[in-house]
């Protein structure tokens, strides 16, 4: 039960994008197309899971003072691995993500989870935390990319959604669209949370 909670924590309750607000740069940059969003989500999740596992293994004998450089080296090694694999087998995706592949190293989610979770918990819990956070990150990316691709290009996975005559709002795939979509989605998330809490409070009052 407890482990299940660790897993689902990152997906919704502590979603890395909408709640912790970490790792915004790749989120805004690659969410112009669903395909790229999924690619980025998988790449970042892989690095997150692997670095969480390794860091929770080495947390016992890494001196506290130099833990951050050690974590960064672990993370960077996996990023290089991802970079080389993408370059070898998925060239179009590698070109689409461009500079944001090496920048996974400084994605705050990964170092943030290493520092906040993996350096304090066991291997299994860290693995589950990595999976949950990775899924939450990917989910947020895909939601954003879906909105931006449909509104901005009138496409979903490269296929037409509405008839050709439907005017696409190009601003949504340009940089401003990314900021606007993230802002509005965050607002909706907070609104939904407040609404549920109010409902719960009212229900408790009724019982009394």
């Amino acid at each position: 039960m407890n482990q299940f909670k660790v897993l689902t924590n990152g997906i919704w309750k502590e979603n890395p994008i909408f709640v912790i607000v970490l790792g915004m740069c790749p989120t805004l940059a690659v969410s112009t197309a669903v395909e790229n969003a999924i690619g980025m989500g998988i790449a970042a999740s892989f690095v997150l899971i692997m670095s969480n596992i390794i860091i929770s293994m080495i947390r016992g004998f890494v001196p506290n003072k130099i833990r951050i450089p050690c974590f960064i080296v672990v993370i960077a090694s996996f990023v290089v691995l991802v970079e080389l694999v993408l370059k070898a087998y998925f060239m179009p995706l590698y070109q689409a993500l461009g500079i944001f592949i090496p920048l996974i190293v400084v994605n705050c989610i990964i170092l943030g989870r290493a520092e906040a979770f993996a350096s304090k918990n066991g291997v299994m819990a860290s693995f589950l935390d990595g999976v949950g956070m990775g899924l939450g990150f990917t989910l947020a990316l895909v939601i954003m990319a879906t909105i931006r691709e449909i509104l901005g290009l009138n496409k979903f996975f490269g296929l037409l959604v509405f008839p050709k005559e439907f005017p696409a709002a190009a601003i949504m795939i340009l940089p401003p669209g990314g900021f606007l979509v993230v802002g509005i989605l965050m607002g909706l998330y907070v609104w939904n949370k407040n609404r549920l809490r109010l409902k719960q409070l009212n229900a408790e009052k009724m019982k009394c």
């Binding site: 607000v21 401003p176 669209g177 990314g178 900021f179 606007l180 993230v182 802002g183 509005i184 965050m186 607002g187 909706l188 907070v190 609104w191 407040n194």
Partner: peptide, 15 residues
């Protein structure tokens, strides 16, 4: 609006 306070409004301004 209450739901937009803090981070959400910051992103909308940035947009």
């Amino acid at each position: 609006p209450k739901s937009l306070r803090g981070m959400p409004i910051a992103f909308i301004i940035a947009g």
